[in-house]
Amino acid sequence: MRNYGIRTATCDDVGAARAVMLDTVYRDFGTGYVPRWHGDIIDPEGAYLRPERHTLLVAVDEEDGGVVATAALDSRGPAHPPNPAWIAERFPSGETAQLRRVYVRAEHRRRGLARRLVGELLDFAAAAGGYRSVYLHTDPAVPGAEDFWRSMGKAVLDERGEPGGARVVHFEVPMRVA
Rank of each mutant, 00 (worst) to 15 (best):
R2C: 11
R2N: 13
Y4V: 08
A9T: 01
C11L: 13
R18K: 15
V20Y: 09
L22Y: 13
T24C: 15
T24H: 15
V25K: 00
V25W: 06
F29E: 10
G30I: 06
G30C: 08
Y33K: 01
Y33E: 05
W37M: 09
W37Q: 10
H38T: 00
H38D: 13
G39V: 00
I41D: 00
P44F: 06
E45H: 02
G46Q: 02
A47P: 02
Y48K: 03
R50F: 04
P51Y: 07
R53Q: 09
H54E: 02
L56R: 01
L56P: 00
L56Y: 00
A59G: 14
V60N: 06
E63Q: 15
D64L: 10
V68Y: 08
T70H: 01
T70C: 12
S75M: 02
P78T: 05
A79H: 12
N83K: 09
P84K: 10
A85W: 12
R90N: 05
R90E: 13
G94C: 06
G94M: 04
T96S: 06
Y103E: 05
V104D: 00
R105K: 14
A106K: 13
E107A: 15
E107N: 08
H108Q: 06
R109L: 02
R109I: 05
R110L: 10
R111E: 11
G112L: 13
R115N: 03
L117N: 03
G119Q: 11
G119I: 08
E120V: 04
E120D: 13
L122M: 08
A125H: 04
G129I: 07
Y131L: 03
V134S: 08
Y135L: 05
D139Y: 07
P140E: 11
V142F: 09
F148D: 07
F148S: 05
M152I: 10
M152R: 13
G153H: 10
G153I: 12
A155E: 13
V156I: 15
V156L: 14
E159I: 08
E162F: 15
P163I: 11
P163L: 10
G164N: 04
G165A: 09
V168M: 08
V169P: 04
V173S: 09
